[in-house]
């Protein structure tokens, strides 16, 4: 099958830190508008996999292609322009207001004028429901608001693909819903998303596909209903059962 058919193709991805193999032959593809959820125990390589896609982490073997283009052959900054990323710890720029956080990319990377970048930032903040907090600084925002700014910041670059690295893990339970709400809207609008998350309610309702990763290997993947009702591997079943026990099958609903 040609790579050109998919938005994202990951083939035989290998990554190790020293002697330790963190990713061991990962293969999967994503089409435009897919929402791929990545689950697995901590240390299984989920975040590393995400970071390989936008080359925040360099990998040793295999290929990743975005829209048919080998990411290793792309200019790294150009690649990152096309791939938005949302972090567990938000990583907002502490000295900039919400608006300035979102406008920095359009202004300094896309070379837009200050006014254009500002307008764009306000649009994106509006999209995540934070138009009224545009002039607040990160330290003045709640965790949920920070993460929504983080999402707006990534969206302002018009990414083809959004990577979410446990976007709700650092949030108080009552703030998780607002972030998942924004993510669901994005999915509805047709954004292609690769998410590391253990929010099973979100995964069940929004994901087109769920992948279970353990010890750097892709143990199982499939559409949410199948995976939840009829997992083929015992480990998948155990892991899902534990998650469901913990989160009651979907903390947001």
């Amino acid at each position: 099958m040609s790579r050109n058919d998919h938005l994202l193709t990951v083939e035989d991805l290998q990554k190790s830190y020293g002697d330790e193999l963190v990713l061991d032959g990962i293969d999967f593809t994503m089409d435009a508008q897919d929402v791929q959820v990545l689950i697995g125990p901590s240390g299984s390589g989920k975040s590393t996999l995400l970071r390989c896609v936008n080359r925040l982490t360099e990998f040793e073997g295999g290929t990743i292609s975005l829209d048919g283009e080998d990411v290793m052959a792309m200019d790294v900054n150009e690649l990152r322009r096309q791939v938005g990323m949302v972090f567990q710890d938000f990583n907002l720029f502490a000295h900039l207001s919400a608006r300035e956080n979102v406008a920095l990319g359009p202004r300094r990377v896309l070379g837009k004028s200050k006014a254009e970048a500002n307008d764009r930032a306000l649009d994106e903040l509006e999209r995540v429901g934070l138009a009224d907090q545009a002039d607040s600084y990160p330290a003045e925002l709640s965790g949920g608001q920070k993460q929504r700014v983080g999402i707006a910041r990534a969206l302002a670059m018009d990414p083809k693909l959004m990577l979410f690295d446990e976007p709700t893990s650092a949030l108080d339970p009552e703030l998780i819903g607002e972030v998942l709400g924004v993510m669901r809207e994005l999915a509805d609008e047709g954004m292609t998303m690769l998410c590391v998350t253990h929010e099973m309610g979100f995964a069940r309702q929004v994901a087109t596909d769920i992948m279970f990763l353990e010890d750097g290997r892709l143990v199982e993947h499939g559409d949410p209903e199948r995976l939840f009702t009829d997992p083929r591997h015992e480990r998948t079943e155990q892991f899902l059962r534990r998650l469901t026990e913990l989160h009651g099958g979907g903390s947001e609903s």
Binding site: L56, R81, D89, F93, G105, R153
Partner: peptide
């Protein structure tokens, strides 16, 4: 300064 912020800047496409 939290290094995560530099990572985020890089992720937006800044060198």
């Amino acid at each position: 300064v939290d290094p995560g912020q530099l990572t985020a800047a890089r992720a937006v496409g800044l060198d």
